[in-house]
Nucleic acid binder design. Structure first.
Lengths: 108, 108
DNA sequence: CTTCCATACCTAGTAACACTAGGTATGGAA
DNA sequence: TTCCATACCTAGTGTTACTAGGTATGGAAG
C-alpha cells in the first residue's frame, strides 16, 4: 500500500525524464530500495488518472526494434503538483513521526 | 487522509495510558502539531476495528460528575502491533523519501 | 518454425480506509 | 430552560491500490 503518495512518486520518477509504464515500475522499485514493487494493475490506472488530470502527457512510440510503448512526460502542472506533493509528504511525515515517536521525534 | 497509519498513531497515544475517544482525538491533534484534526467519524470506527482485532480493550466508565465514557487500553497484542507499526512506518518513510528525493534523502 | 518467455499494455471488480453527514444523549453554564 | 460542549454512534460515499484476469509482440530456444 502506497497510501496516497503514489502520484507524487510517479511524478518524481518522470522528473528525471520521460518513461513508459514498465520502466516506471522498475524505477520505483530501484529508488525505493525494493520496498515498492508495484503490480501493473497499480501503475497503469494511476498513469491514466494522472494524464486525465493533465499532470502527465503521453505519446505512443515504436522504437525500430521494439514493442509499442506509451511514453509519459511531466507537464507543467505535473511539476507544480510534484512540488506540492513533496511539501505535503514532508508535513505528513513530520506529523506521523511526532505522533508515533512517544515524544522524541528525529532531533533537529 | 491518514493513509493507513491511523492504527499505529492511535496505539501510540494509548501507550501513554488508557483514554477515551474524544481524548484520543485531542491527543492526536496535539502530538501532530495540529496537522491531524480527526473527525469523530474517523476515530470511532477505527477504535471499534482495533478492539475487534484484540489490539485494544474497552471498559465503560462513568466518573462521579461526568458523562459515560468508553475508555480504551492497549492489549499485549496492541503493544506488539505498535512496535510493528513503527518499523513499518520507518521503512515506508525511508522508501518514500528516497523515491521522492531525486537521490538525496535526509542525510544519515 | 514453433513454442515459450519477457516485455508491454490494458481493465473490471474488490477490499480497505478515512471521511461526510447525519443521529442520540447528558452535564453544566447562561 | 435553553443551549453548548462533551461524548458516543453509524450508514453511506469516494478514493485508492490491488487482484486477477486478458491481449499482443519481439526474440531466444528447441
Amino acid at each position: 500500500m502506497l497510501k496516497g503518495h503514489l502520484d507524487a512518486i510517479v511524478l518524481a520518477v518522470l522528473e528525471s525524464g520521460p518513461a513508459h509504464g514498465y520502466a516506471i515500475i522498475e524505477a520505483i522499485r530501484s529508488r525505493s530500495g525494493g520496498t515498492f514493487d508495484l503490480p501493473e494493475g497499480t501503475i497503469y490506472p494511476a498513469l491514466h488518472r494522472l494524464e486525465q488530470a493533465a499532470l502527465l502527457s503521453s505519446t505512443w512510440t515504436t522504437p525500430p526494434n521494439g514493442r509499442r510503448r506509451r511514453v509519459y512526460a511531466l507537464t507543467r502542472n505535473g511539476s507544480a503538483r510534484l512540488a506540492e506533493g513533496r511539501k505535503a509528504w514532508s508535513r505528513f511525515a513530520k506529523a506521523v513521526d511526532s505522533s508515533l515517536g512517544g515524544g522524541r521525534a528525529w532531533p533537529a
